[in-house]
Design a protein around this nucleic acid. Structure first.
Lengths: 342, 342
DNA sequence: AAAAAAAGTTTGCGCGCGTAAAATTTATAT
DNA sequence: ATATAAATTTTACGCGCGCAAACTTTTTTT
């Protein structure tokens, strides 16, 4: 840090002995200027610690370097982790990731998309709320901004979709559960996104294919407190009629976490041991699933692959100028994670 | 949505029959213009859906409306929840909250602060990493930007601090544990922030005051996977020497969650029942603590109060023009949450 | 060494808005 | 109705940078 403070690019250009347009070019892409020039600029940069005004930059650039990341519910560590991964990859490519959460509310998602739009991002990675989304608002947004959807699909909206293959993951665990014990029933809550429905349907198909009757148990719940919903619903069911079979496959891990807690409270032993009364399995391999008691058997969503692929597709989309020829959908397979609960 | 698209404020001013400076004033603060004028503008706003260019706005404003929120680790639902609360309050006051996570890394925190600074926020709510923070970087930041610290204090840095009173909360649960069973030992990991140390010290003081020997058990761990650290460390200890007493107070809930999982794996029964072998308690009332098996007895941090107060203080700070006369520290008391684990 | 290509410089314009001062209109108080 | 205050309009300038065109210098090619 040297002498006077630099207030704009012109001053910085002067002290570094380079013309302003070249300096501008450097900040746009350091590799676009000659090595010797780059060295001189970076040398001056160390002495003066100047940073271009991002507002002026973004106002005048054709394209900003901003990438929007929108997740439905950031308090869910699953989405927090995906967001973190995406953020890292964007940063390493010189972009400015900005993270938003819809907080599970349709209105908030709409507001987020509106605000995000006025940031004029080059691209957006959007995990929509799903069934609770204001479909038209999302459509409008995706028409105006190059967007890749992930986690939760909305048919025909966005330039691509990346998610996991429920049609593979659900049969995988259903087959495992049937092979190792009583066939499972399916425990679900009102579907918040298309995945929930796909999982239920995949369950029905899979269990029938194995020659069993499909039992679906649905509990109420309108919030995003999935654990609480699983707990409350599970408690009620276990106290009254019980489940149709002694194995329960939950629509997602968070529901299963609540159900395990309910079972424990009622002193119903969970697990695959001989003395256990009920087996509980989940779906997603949520970050906390390995720390339930007993630890939760589940199908892991490959969220590293999902976030990596999402970013990759978005970068392609950006390079292609904002629209792809075909809207491709990439689905990743789940992996069985055998733990103690089933 | 009507006729032609409005590309700038001048055009919008024309179609709404108001002068541009007045329109500008309106967008700065809708209440600063006459009611009749406001009505006319908002009427036009409905017909034309114009939004001012935020980059141009922020470039020229004395103060932006941006409020930075920085948390150490967003994948921790505790911080995600606080962030959500803060965000809501900022939005309702017409500010633009932008959320950042340090991802538990010193370098990343530094980068975040650097980037945030160039956004020229009016104010920032910062929960620093703590001991892993680059103290000088944080200091420099706080000198340049009106900042309120929360959760984790750094002496003399920032215009205010809001957190919880470990000197009250720890004795509270220590007293409870001693009253209802064997005195606890203290289970901790390498301290990531000042709270960890304060809790240990508070534990020692409290347990001695009650006439017991303070036993501290520390396990290794350098990441932010607190559950994993609690699990691995707990497993090792329980398999070997065991804990000094049959009651374990953990430095935080996430550690306790891991420890409960370890105990379960070793078929050590956790709880306050007569047949139980060990009692485990935590600190924070983490969102997941009610869903462990058994549910976790803990001290609740009043995080609603913490986030509310933080925002309130920041608003005062902003109105005061960026610096307060005195750096006040507000500490909120914890509340005992008796559940099944202790 | 000459020619071609690449990189850098100069000049100048424009982006969309904030803000200030002076002039004018409108609302409120006496 | 008149005086006063408040709100609005007019006019004009500045913010910090991107970008394009024409020109000059440096580097690479043959």
């Amino acid at each position: 840090m040297d002498r006077r403070i630099i207030k704009n690019m012109q001053e910085f250009a002067s002290v570094s002995g380079i013309s302003r347009p070249t300096v501008s070019k450097y900040f746009n892409d350091p590799n676009s200027v000659r090595q010797s020039t780059r060295a001189r600029i970076e040398e001056a940069l160390e002495r003066y610690d100047y940073r271009p005004n991002i507002y002026a930059m973004n106002q005048n650039r054709r394209l900003t370097k901003i990438i929007g990341i929108v997740v439905p519910y950031l308090s869910d560590p699953f989405f927090a982790e995906i967001a973190r991964n995406i953020e890292r990859r964007c940063l390493s490519k010189g972009f400015w990731p900005i993270l938003f959460s819809s907080h599970g509310e349709k209105e908030h998602e709409r507001d987020v998309l509106d605000n995000l739009r006025s940031l004029k991002p080059v691209g957006v990675l959007l995990a929509p709320l799903g069934r609770r989304s204001d479909r038209r608002a999302v459509e409008r947004f995706c028409k105006a901004v190059p967007t890749v959807l992930f986690d939760s699909n909305i048919d025909g909206v966005g330039e691509a979709f990346i998610g996991s293959d429920n049609g593979q993951s659900v049969p995988l665990i259903v087959e495992y559960l049937c092979r190792t014990g009583s066939p499972p029933c399916f425990f679900e809550m009102p579907p918040v996104n298309p995945n929930a429905n796909k999982r239920r349907d995949a369950f029905i198909t899979a269990i029938q294919q194995l020659g069993h009757e499909p039992h679906i148990v649905r509990v109420d719940g309108k919030t995003w407190d999935f654990e609480q919903i699983g707990f409350d619903g599970g408690l009620r069911i276990l106290q009254r009629e019980g489940f149709a079979t002694s194995t329960v496959l939950c629509s997602n891990d968070r529901l299963a976490i609540g159900l395990i807690a309910a079972a424990h409270q009622l002193e119903i032993s969970v697990g695959r041991g001989a003395t256990c009364q009920i087996r509980i399995a989940g779906h997603d391999d949520h970050p906390f699933s390995r720390f339930t008691s007993p630890s939760l058997t589940t199908v892991a969503q490959d969220y590293a692959a999902i976030s990596n692929k999402s970013v990759e597709v978005l970068f392609n989309l950006i390079e292609a100028g904002g629209d792809l020829d075909v809207r491709d959908e990439t689905l990743f397979e789940g992996k069985l994670v055998m733990r103690a609960s089933a």
